[in-house]
Amino acid sequence: MSEASVPVHADVAARTKPRPAPRPRRFTPRRVTAILSHAYIWFCLAVFVLPFFALLAQSLGSRGGSAGIANFGDALGSFGDNLFWSFKITGAVLVLDLVVCLPAAYAIVRYPVPGKRLLFSLLQLPLYVPGAVIGLSLLFTYTFAYRIESTLGLILALAVGSFPLMLTPLVVAMKDLPIVFEEAAVCLGATGWQTYRKIVFPLIGPGVSAGLLLCFIIVFNEYLVTLFVHPPSLETAPLRVFNLVRTNGLAPTTAALAVVMQGISFIAVLAFFRIFGTRHLKGTYIL
């Protein structure tokens, strides 16, 4: 490099030297918005989660420390029957809801039912009516024809109250399923049942799984309808919690049972997200 060329290059270097980037402002509007958003989420989370921790603290309560764990042993021991009944009743209701809602969703979406929107709104009615009203109306309506205060009566009553939660995701899933798959199947020689079993049912899986989750959570924790229509020999876990709180206040063993029930619901939701992911909740407006 010649000496003559040095000043030229130095000049170019001086001109092209990048300026130091201006120091970012600490609180830009965007950053403030982000902080507020996070704070709001944490606030909501605290509001919703705090009662659970309060209940957990109560369940570990009177015996104190590690001995408080014994309350859970008592809960599972003495309330085992109640939990078992809750699982059995919930399982039966889920099966019944599914059996009723699968063909109903198919008919609502695929067939030209007159007044379809009105009909669908009427079918949603149990969601808008308090559980006590459902229980009373079931008693008034069917008790003359059938002994509704029985296990079967309870299953039917809970199914009436929860089936919209199954129907809605199924209807949405059916609407999302292009009819061309069914047409392709029948053109390939499949019967209506083969088409439903091999093509439609697997493809509306997201709706089925979302419906099962919603119904499980609602039915497993339902006590108000159960209060009206349960047979004397049958007491589900949420009803037991309700009865115990009403008579004895919130004893630590009762709180332990309530925590176990919340834990089961929480595990169901976690398992759902783990297995199916959030996309399977598409179309549900509850979660």
């Binding site: 061309v180 392709a184 199947a185 029948v186 053109c187 020689g189």
Partner: peptide, 17 residues
Amino acid sequence: PPRARNIGFVFQTPALF
């Protein structure tokens, strides 16, 4: 019905399951 006609229908979209 379509299943009794022994036809092959190729749709606008592939419509693969």
